[in-house]
Measured scan of single mutants.
Amino acid sequence: TDVTFHVNGRNLHLKGADEELLRRIEELIRRGADIEELEKAVKEWEK
């Protein structure tokens, strides 16, 4: 799945995201995470 999140005026584009990653990103956004936290979560998922 390709999806782009718009967070605090910045874009986080995910290519090939699975349901697990999407749920994790949505949860972080609900908690008020900043873009750096979201990018870190994506990097951890990519490993």
Rank of each mutant, 00 (worst) to 15 (best):
E20H: 12
T1W: 14
R10D: 12
R30W: 10
E20R: 12
V7P: 08
E39G: 05
A33G: 04
I35C: 02
L38K: 00
D34W: 05
E46S: 11
G32F: 04
L38Q: 00
I25Q: 00
I35W: 13
K40H: 11
N8Y: 02
L14E: 00
I25T: 01
L38G: 00
K43F: 11
W45A: 05
L38C: 10
D2F: 03
L22A: 03
G32M: 04
I25V: 09
D18V: 06
E36A: 07
A33W: 10
V42N: 02
K47C: 07
T4M: 08
E46D: 13
R23N: 08
E46Y: 14
E37N: 06
H6D: 15
E37V: 09
I29P: 00
E19L: 09
G32P: 01
L28R: 04
T1A: 11
E20T: 13
R30Y: 08
I35L: 08
T1D: 07
A17L: 04
N11D: 15
R24A: 13
A17T: 04
D2L: 04
V3L: 12
H6S: 05
A17E: 02
A33T: 07
T4L: 05
E20K: 12
F5L: 15
R10P: 02
L14C: 01
I29E: 01
I25W: 01
G16P: 01
N11Y: 15
W45I: 04
I29M: 06
A41C: 08
T1I: 15
E20G: 14
E37L: 09
D34P: 05
G9Y: 01
E44K: 08
T1M: 14
G9L: 02
L12S: 00
L21Q: 04
R24Y: 14
E39S: 06
R24H: 14
G16F: 06
A33L: 09
G16K: 06
H13N: 05
K15N: 06
G9Q: 02
L22V: 15
V3I: 13
D18C: 07
N11E: 15
K15D: 04
L21E: 01
L21N: 01
R24D: 06
K47M: 14
A17W: 05
E44P: 02
T4C: 15
N8G: 09
E36S: 06
E20L: 14
I25L: 09
V7R: 01
L21T: 08
A33E: 07
E44Q: 11
L28I: 03
K47Y: 11
